[in-house]
């Protein structure tokens, strides 16, 4: 009864056209939707839209804090410089290579780990805990820990090799070995994330499918390729999208392991952006690099989204 009378009151006000805000007291579905979305939209504008616009604007400026002169409009100058910069191409290539190696690598290792964790053990928590730990470890910690593992004199990797009678290498003294060490570390660090998502996917597959396959006489291998893998596809695609995007932004592990060395041979695009903005304080050039990286990530995401839509 009370609600009904309130509604009447509000309607009366509206008809007399005095208080504009009163319609918020009994919003239509549309107004309610806008109202409820407003906080999220405002927050996103503040922390994403504004910084991205500002970044794009800065990328068209000559803005270097070390120059001592105020910012001037530069047009496309920063972008021309980016395209002519050999270090930009080198770091971009390194980033792409890291993505191409570590994403499939982490997928394979993660899949194997997930299948192992899904085995009907009596005690499940040790397996699951060991899956969670690499995932929960901060990236830079992982980088620092593995930098010690791969240290040519004090590291555990060369020590194990030596005990096996193999002469170890000076990992960070060679571009290829340093790159391999970084990729191994990234795969170790990220395959548990893959495994967690795939494990969640595995648990949604009904037992009954396997029981039916058993009855029909399908072997374990056949079951894996005909049941497990097709039903895991959505989980795998989600894991791949997340992993690819973070792989394109690789920063922490190479930064803490090699600082991009020897020379600039293990430097990534994200590290080069950081170097130009934070170390060299060349905000204009750094922003142009960041816009290029942003475009690269957007492109890859678009490809994935199209793949999902095609599947759907």
């Amino acid at each position: 009864m009370a609600t009904a009378s309130e509604t009447t009151l509000v309607t009366t006000h509206n008809e007399s056209g005095t208080k504009w805000w009163t319609r918020f007291l009994d919003p239509s579905e549309r107004t309610l939707a806008v109202l409820l979305l407003m906080p999220a939209a405002l927050l996103l504008t503040l922390i994403i839209v504004y910084p991205v616009c500002r970044l794009i604007w800065t990328s068209f400026q000559n803005l270097s804090l070390t120059s001592g002169v105020p910012a001037t409009f530069a047009g496309l100058e920063n972008y021309t410089l980016v395209l002519e910069d050999p270090v930009f191409w080198e770091t971009t290539w390194n980033t792409v290579l890291i993505t191409l190696i570590t994403v499939p690598g982490a997928l394979l290792v993660g899949l194997a780990l997930a299948l192992m964790a899904n085995l009907p053990f009596n005690v499940k928590w040790p397996v699951r805990l060991s899956l969670l730990i690499p995932w929960a470890l901060p990236l830079s910690f992982a980088g620092l820990i593995f930098a010690w593992f791969f240290h040519s004199e004090y590291g555990v990797v060369n020590d194990v090799l030596r005990r096996l009678g193999i002469e170890g290498v000076i990992w960070f003294n060679s571009a290829n070995w340093a790159f391999a060490a970084i990729c191994l570390t990234i795969i170790w660090k990220t395959s548990s994330f893959m495994a967690l998502i795939i494990l969640a996917g595995l648990q949604t597959i009904p037992r009954s499918l396997y029981e039916a396959a058993d009855v029909d006489g399908a072997g374990r291998l056949r079951q894996f390729f005909e049941i497990t893998l097709p039903l895991l596809k959505p989980a795998i695609v989600v894991a791949l999208i997340f992993r690819t995007i973070t792989a394109l932004q690789t920063f922490d592990i190479p930064f803490t392991m090699t600082r991009g060395g020897p020379g600039t041979s293990t430097s990534t695009l994200a590290m080069y952006i950081h170097q130009n903005t934070v170390d060299f304080l060349d905000l204009g050039y750094g922003s142009a690099l960041a816009v290029v990286m942003f475009a690269l990530s957007m492109g890859v995401t678009a490809v994935y989204l199209r793949m999902i839509r095609a599947k759907g």
Binding site: N173, S174, G261, G263, T264
Partner: peptide, 12 residues
């Protein structure tokens, strides 16, 4: 420093 590092590592 990256050049010195690269030369000492035998990269160049």
């Amino acid at each position: 420093r990256t050049t010195v590092n690269g030369v000492l590592a035998g990269q160049s």
